[in-house]
Amino acid sequence: MTGTKRGDVPVTPDGRYIVVRGRLWRRSNPALAEDVRQALVADLMSARRAVGTARRAGDKDALADAGRRVDDAKTALGERGPVWWDDGAPDLNRHMARTTPYRDWFEGLA
């Protein structure tokens, strides 16, 4: 679904970003095979749980390791690191939608 809402989250017309509280967040690479994507999402969720466990335990080493695992999973999904599109468009991850070329589209959602 592009240019529409996926659940409660708007997706930009080109499918590159979701918008949360007015901010663009890069989506996963749609070229990933579904089984690969599911495995990476499982890794990401496991790493996020490990972050919480380490925080509650006050274990700085475990927290650093879990944070690296989160970053690795998000990078493999295409949400961080090099962009997954090849048309030369800049990465607008974490930009406010109202300050990007998506402004008119975003304002039209309201």
Results as ranks from 00 to 15, higher is better:
2 T>V: 12
2 T>A: 14
3 G>M: 09
3 G>I: 04
4 T>L: 10
4 T>S: 07
6 R>I: 02
6 R>K: 09
9 V>P: 04
9 V>F: 11
10 P>K: 00
12 T>N: 00
13 P>K: 08
16 R>D: 07
17 Y>V: 08
18 I>N: 09
19 V>P: 01
19 V>R: 06
19 V>D: 09
21 R>M: 01
21 R>L: 02
22 G>C: 06
22 G>E: 05
23 R>G: 05
28 S>C: 07
28 S>A: 12
28 S>N: 08
30 P>W: 06
30 P>A: 01
30 P>D: 04
30 P>F: 02
31 A>W: 07
33 A>K: 07
33 A>E: 05
33 A>I: 01
34 E>I: 13
34 E>N: 08
35 D>M: 10
37 R>F: 12
40 L>N: 02
41 V>D: 06
41 V>P: 03
42 A>Q: 14
42 A>R: 13
42 A>E: 15
43 D>L: 01
43 D>G: 07
43 D>I: 03
45 M>L: 15
48 R>I: 14
49 R>K: 15
50 A>S: 15
51 V>T: 04
51 V>H: 03
52 G>Y: 07
55 R>M: 09
57 A>Y: 04
57 A>W: 04
58 G>M: 05
59 D>C: 03
61 D>K: 02
61 D>H: 04
62 A>G: 03
64 A>T: 14
65 D>Q: 09
65 D>P: 00
66 A>T: 05
66 A>E: 04
67 G>D: 14
68 R>C: 12
71 D>L: 11
72 D>Q: 13
73 A>N: 03
74 K>L: 15
77 L>Q: 03
78 G>C: 05
78 G>F: 05
81 G>H: 04
84 W>S: 06
85 W>I: 12
86 D>R: 12
86 D>N: 13
86 D>V: 09
87 D>T: 07
87 D>I: 09
87 D>W: 10
88 G>V: 08
88 G>H: 07
89 A>K: 08
90 P>D: 10
91 D>R: 01
93 N>L: 08
93 N>E: 12
95 H>P: 02
96 M>G: 08
97 A>D: 00
97 A>V: 01
99 T>E: 15
99 T>Q: 14
100 T>A: 11
100 T>V: 10
102 Y>P: 01
105 W>C: 14
105 W>S: 15
108 G>A: 14
110 A>E: 15
